[in-house]
Amino acid sequence: MGCFCSTSKNVKTPGYEDPTILASETPFTVSEVEALYELFLKLSNSIIEDGLIHKEEFQLALFRNENEKNLFADRIFDLFDVKRNGVIEFGEFVRSLGVFHPNAALEDKIAFAFRLYDLRQTGYIEREELKEMVLALLHESDLVLSDDMIEAIVDKTFKDADTKDDGRIDQDEWKAFVSQHPSLIKNMTLPYLKDITLAFPSFIARTEVEDSE
């Protein structure tokens, strides 16, 4: 009796892209892109089995709780969702994670972090946005700071970063500020991405394309 299993791993998800092309556009090898597909399949079928990562699935992976609300996780999801259609497709997932690769260009990491902090997507990090992000962090943590203290910290940060003194941080000011404070982009590097093929060895049996190096 013939049986076609629709959940076969040979059936690619919507938005699937050729690993060879994704590898050519990112720091990943073809093998690593295939390994990331294993991870993508797991994440994208954790709640809704449609092969697309929904925000709840992203939050579930990050916090083990699909209902956890977090301003920054929301922002990262929105940046991964390049097409702005409410889901992360495989190509978007790989290209975005590529920025977090230890070998990714520093400029890309700096630019990604800027967009993360530019909450209202105006092309600038504004004082109110910065304060909003500090308040959001305090809300989710046990840190307690007085309003005066928060104001002083935001003022000091702006005084240091907003060198043009126009009340907002532009991309050039951000680059200069990061060069003085490299720790600001330490979250932009995920060491896990160097060992991705070790974490997901199951792809090896099915790999279709050899790495060029």
């Binding site: 991870l39 992976a61 990050l62 996780a73 929301d74 500090v134 962090l137 600001l184 979250n187 995920l190």
Partner: peptide, 27 residues
């Protein structure tokens, strides 16, 4: 406490939402 040496972006980076390592756990 020397809070005037604290950088707002460094404080923000403590957020759990910035830590993507959860994506790679339980694999």
């Amino acid at each position: 406490k020397p809070c005037n040496n604290l950088n707002a972006f460094d404080i923000i980076s403590f957020s759990s939402g910035f830590d993507l390592s959860g994506l790679f756990e339980d694999t």
